[in-house]
């Protein structure tokens, strides 16, 4: 009995060390990745409404040849974003996958815990199968479960991936809920207003992106 308990304690301890080690890397900006492949497997977490438009505009500037294959993750009740993605990608090859939304607008924080768990369970097999190397996200809907799963799998050495979070341009002085959570986990955390620096622990500012 004693052996089992001490083994479990040891495993938990090692896991915690790994989590803190990764968070230390995140905070000290060791966010690079050198792929053995010629392209990076990439996930784009598509939010909704204005966030989708913003992400699509950012994607339009990215060298897409480097980020292949591309998987777009959409919320299952988001009807307009698929059209926007298809319009932006035109003839290119890409994939779309839908997951349940982790939090709807005006949903309470308590009930959003359960919907987030549900969304996370849907995300797990998807991430395990796709094994992304880079995840881009910019806000609500899908990004918390996807990033959470990706970070945990990275802690367990199953996945080696980097998270890029871009806070929405409409956030001038306060962070979004996604931003508040992901500032601890995202390897690259980008804000679009210099004033926002005072509201977060760490961020990169490259000017306005969209």
């Amino acid at each position: 009995m004693g052996i089992i308990i001490s083994t479990i304690t040891l495993i938990i301890l090692l896991f915690m060390v790994r989590v803190f080690y990764l968070m230390f890397n995140v905070f000290t900006g060791k966010c690079g990745i050198s792929s053995k492949n010629r392209t990076l497997k990439t996930i784009f977490c598509i939010g909704s409404g204005g966030h989708t438009s913003e992400m699509i505009r950012i994607i339009s500037h990215i060298n897409l040849k480097k980020y292949e294959p591309r998987l777009y993750i959409l919320a299952d009740n988001d009807s307009s974003s698929e059209y926007k993605v298809k319009e932006a990608e035109k003839e290119n090859v890409f994939m779309i996958h839908r997951i349940p939304r982790s939090r709807n607008v005006k949903q309470s924080y308590v009930s959003s815990i359960f919907t987030t768990i549900n969304a996370t369970l849907h995300t797990l097999p998807l991430i395990c199968h796709f094994k992304p190397e880079v995840i881009f996200c910019n806000g609500p809907g899908t990004c918390i479960p996807v990033c959470l799963v990706a970070f945990l799998l990275r802690c367990l050495f199953i996945l080696d991936c980097r998270i890029v979070f871009i806070e929405s341009v409409c956030r001038v002085r306060t962070l979004s809920l996604s931003g508040k959570i992901l500032q601890f986990f995202a390897d690259v955390f980008v804000i679009q207003w210099p004033e926002l620096r005072h509201a977060c622990i760490r961020a990169k500012y490259f000017g306005r992106l969209t």
Binding site: C31, G32, I33, S34, S35, K36, N37, R38, T39, L40, H61, I62, N63, K66, V134, R162, V164, V188, V190, K204, F206, G207, L209
Partner: peptide, 12 residues
């Protein structure tokens, strides 16, 4: 931002 990404994400 784009050149920063190119800088940190390297491919073979």
């Amino acid at each position: 931002f784009i050149s920063y990404l190119d800088d940190i994400f390297k491919v073979a």
